[in-house]
Design a binder for these strands. Structure first.
Length: 592
RNA sequence: GACCCCAUCGUCUAGCCUGGUCUAGGACAGCUGGUUUUCAGCCAGCUAACCCGGGUUCAAAUCCCGGUGGGGUCACCA
C-alpha cells in the first residue's frame, strides 16, 4: 500500500506490533518481554513491590492511568511485583461498574499486574478488548473467586478473581483486619474512641471557620476513658492520637525532605462508625501487610502523608518510600476534572485512541527521559524510567499532542492490524452489520454485510479503504466519516463543489463526459497505478489541465471537496460504480 | 485563612544536582514555503520562554534569601 510506503518512521523501534488475541496471524511483537523478570532487583534491601490502589468511585481517568503506568514502569524496571488493590471503603460513593472500568482499562492498555483482582471473563463491550496483545490472559487461570461482603454496586455484575498471596485485594473484604489493627492502636493509646456526634462536629467546624481558624477536631474525646468495648451500642469512630509536640518528617523520592508540624495535623478518623476504615488506616495497614515497598501516588496525598507516617510509627512498622507525582491539570491549571472535557480513559478508547498512544502520551506528562525523543514503546519506557527524574510541577494535559501521537501510531500499524482496529467503529456507526465476538472472527476470510447496500464486503475490500485513510486518521473513529462514501450507492453533494478553482462551470460536464468515454473504453488493469498513468496520459493527449479533470473526477467519486486521490477511490469502487458516479456528476453538472 | 508543594516558549519538556560550552535545545500547536487535483502526509523554515527583586561569584536559567504567582490539602471522600 502506498500509504505504508510513504510513511517515514519516527517511531520507536521495536515497533509496538500487537497481535490480536486469537485473531489474525499477525506478526508477533518484536519487543522484549519486559514483564518477565528473571530475578527481582531490590531497592533498599527488599524486593520492590508497588501497587495501584484506585477507589471505584468512577471510571479510571487519565490521571489514574498515569499513576498506574508509573507504578507499572517502576515495578518492571526493578523486576518487582505490581499489585492491583481495590479501595472500596466508601459505600456512598461507589459507582456501578467502577471496578470493571479499572480492570478493563488496564487490560486494554496492556498494563499487566502480578497480584490482585482480575476479571476472568472477556469484556462486554467489544472496544474494550485489548488490541495491545500484551494484556494478561486472565481466563482459565483458576484463581480464587472473590465475593466481598460489600456488594454495594462496586462490582456491577462482574465476576472477580484474585491472584496473589496477600489477599483479599478488595478492601471491603478485609474489614476484620482493619478493625483488629484499629483496636490495637486504641489499646496502646495511639488512637482513641470518639463518640462526638456529627452534629457537634459540624457545629464545631462552623465556629472554627467563623473564627477563621483551620477546621479540625478539637480533641474532645482524646482523653475520655471510653473503650471501644464499652461503646459497642453507641456509634463511635476511632481517631488517631496525633502527638501535640514535634514534627513529622519523611523523604519523598520526587520532592526530597518534607516536614509537617504535628500540632497542625488533625486527629484523623481511622475507623468509621459503619465499621469501615478510612483511606488512611486501610491504606497503611494494607501496604504493610502486602509488603509494599514504594508508594507511588498523586500529589494530592502529600498533605496526608504525615498521618500515614505517624500510623506506621504507631504500629512499629517500617514505612514504605513515598513518591508523590505531580498533578495533571486542566488548561486553566486546576486539577484535571471532567468539567473540561473527557477524562475517563474509556472515553478515549471509544474515540479510537490506541493503547500505545495513550500510554506514551500519559508517560510524558511529568517525566521525560531525554530531550530529543517523543515516541516510546512500553518496553523503552520501562528501560528509561526513573522516579527521580519525575518533575515536581503539575502538567497541563494537552490533548492536541495526544492526537498527533495517535496519528503516528495509526500510521505505524500494518494494513491488517488497521482494518481489524477500524471494523468495530464501522459496525458501531451502522455501516457494517453487527456480529458477536468479532475479534476472533476477523480473519482474512472475514465477510460481512454492508448495512447500507445490503451487499457483502470482504476483508481485503475493508483493508483497502482503511489503508487509504491511514495517513489521514487521527482517531480510529474518524474512519466512519472518512470512508462513508464507499458504503452508499451514491453520496450526496452540492454540485458546485464539482467546479475546480476558477474553471468555468460549463466545462465540468464536458470534461467528465470525455473522461467517462475514455474510461468506458479503458481495458487496462483497474488499479490505482494503472488508472493514474492512463488517465494522466489521456489528459495530456486531450490537451486538458490536470486540475480541471482530476478535481471534478475526485468529487464525483467521493462527493467531497477533500478526499484521497480519485485513482485510489476508483480502484476500490471498481469500474461499474466509478462510471455510475461519473454519470451522476455529469447530470448534476448540467444543472449548474 | 492555615499548612504543604511548585515556578524555562501558548502546552509538554531538556538544561539546574556537578555555575561558564545557553546568542536556552526538542516536541505539540500556530504561521510561511515546497511536493500536489483537494485534504492529509511528508520536506524545509519561522514565531515563541529562563516570574520579580536582592545576594554569592570573575561568571547564575543553574546556588542562597525574600517577594509574587499558581496549585494541592484542610470530611466518619478517596
Amino acid at each position: 500500500m502506498k500509504a505504508e510506503m510513504k510513511f517515514k518512521s519516527k517511531l520507536p523501534s521495536p515497533q509496538p506490533s500487537p497481535a490480536g488475541r486469537g485473531g489474525l496471524a499477525l506478526p508477533a511483537p518484536l519487543s522484549a518481554q519486559a514483564g518477565q523478570p528473571l530475578r527481582p532487583r531490590s531497592e533498599g534491601g527488599l524486593p520492590v513491590r508497588v501497587r495501584f490502589a484506585p477507589s471505584p468511585t468512577g471510571f479510571l481517568h487519565i490521571g489514574g492511568l498515569r499513576t498506574a503506568l508509573y507504578n507499572y514502569l517502576f515495578a518492571r524496571k526493578h523486576r518487582g511485583a505490581f499489585v492491583l488493590r481495590i479501595e472500596d471503603t466508601d459505600r456512598a460513593r461507589a459507582v456501578e461498574g467502577g471496578v470493571e472500568s479499572i480492570i478493563r482499562t488496564l487490560e486494554w492498555c496492556g498494563l499487566d499486574y502480578d497480584e490482585g483482582v482480575f476479571a476472568p471473563t472477556p469484556p462486554s463491550h467489544p472496544l474494550l478488548i485489548s488490541p495491545s496483545g500484551r494484556g494478561r490472559d486472565s481466563s482459565g487461570r483458576g484463581g480464587k473467586i472473590v465475593s466481598p461482603p460489600f456488594e454495594g454496586g462496586v462490582r456491577g455484575g462482574l465476576l472477580l478473581e484474585e491472584h496473589g498471596d496477600y489477599g483479599p485485594y478488595v478492601q471491603s473484604a478485609r474489614l476484620d483486619t482493619y478493625k483488629k489493627y484499629a483496636q490495637k492502636l486504641v489499646e496502646q493509646r495511639s488512637a482513641y474512641v470518639c463518640t462526638c456526634s456529627p452534629e457537634r462536629l459540624e457545629q464545631m467546624r462552623q465556629e472554627q471557620m467563623a473564627r477563621k481558624e483551620a477546621p479540625r477536631y478539637d480533641g474532645h474525646c482524646r482523653t475520655a476513658v471510653v473503650s471501644s468495648q464499652s461503646s459497642v451500642h453507641s456509634r463511635y469512630v476511632i481517631r488517631l492520637k496525633v502527638p501535640e509536640q514535634g514534627s513529622t518528617k519523611f523523604k519523598d523520592i520526587i520532592r526530597g525532605e518534607v516536614e509537617f508540624e504535628n500540632a497542625l495535623i488533625d486527629d484523623q478518623v481511622l475507623l468509621k462508625s459503619d465499621g469501615f476504615p478510612t483511606y488512611h488506616l486501610a491504606n497503611a495497614v494494607d501496604d504493610h501487610l502486602m509488603k509494599i515497598t514504594h508508594v507511588i501516588r498523586g500529589e494530592e496525598w502529600l498533605p496526608s502523608t504525615p498521618k500515614h507516617v505517624l500510623l506506621y510509627k504507631a504500629f512499629g512498622w517500617k514505612a514504605p518510600q513515598f513518591a508523590h507525582l505531580p498533578l495533571l491539570l486542566n488548561s486553566d491549571h486546576s486539577k484535571l476534572s471532567k468539567r473540561q472535557g473527557d477524562v475517563a480513559v474509556e472515553d478515549y478508547i471509544k474515540k479510537g485512541y490506541l493503547p500505545e498512544a495513550l500510554l506514551n502520551f500519559v508517560a510524558l506528562l511529568g517525566w521525560n527521559p531525554r530531550a530529543d525523543k517523543e515516541l516510546y514503546t512500553l518496553d523503552e519506557l520501562v528501560a528509561e524510567f526513573d522516579l527521580k527524574k519525575v518533575n515536581k510541577s503539575g502538567a497541563v494535559v494537552n490533548f492536541e499532542k495526544l492526537d498527533w501521537m495517535n496519528g503516528e501510531y495509526i500510521r505505524a500499524r500494518n494494513a491488517d492490524e488497521l482494518v481489524q482496529l477500524c471494523i468495530p467503529y464501522l459496525m458501531g456507526a451502522g455501516l457494517l452489520g453487527e456480529i458477536q465476538n468479532y475479534k476472533s472472527q476477523i480473519t482474512r476470510k472475514f465477510q460481512i454485510q454492508n448495512s447500507k447496500l445490503g451487499e457483502v464486503v470482504d476483508f481485503s475490500w475493508l483493508r483497502q479503504i482503511a489503508a487509504l485513510e491511514q495517513e489521514r486518521l487521527v482517531k480510529l473513529s474518524d474512519i466512519v466519516e472518512a470512508t462513508e462514501y464507499f458504503f452508499v450507492d451514491q453520496p450526496e453533494y452540492d454540485p458546485m463543489i464539482l467546479v475546480w478553482k476558477k474553471m468555468d462551470k460549463k466545462d465540468v460536464a464536458n470534461n467528465l463526459k470525455g473522461l467517462r468515454e475514455f474510461l468506458t473504453q479503458y481495458g487496462g488493469v483497474w488499479d490505482a497505478n494503472s488508472l493514474e498513468a492512463h488517465i494522466k496520459t489521456w489528459i495530456t493527449k486531450a490537451g486538458r489541465g490536470v486540475g480541471e479533470i482530476l478535481w471534478p473526477l475526485r468529487v464525483a467519486l467521493s462527493g467531497r471537496a477533500a478526499s484521497p486521490t480519485p485513482f485510489d477511490i476508483a480502484a476500490i469502487l471498481g469500474k461499474e460504480k466509478t462510471l455510475k458516479r461519473i454519470q451522476y456528476a455529469i447530470e448534476s453538472a448540467k444543472k449548474l
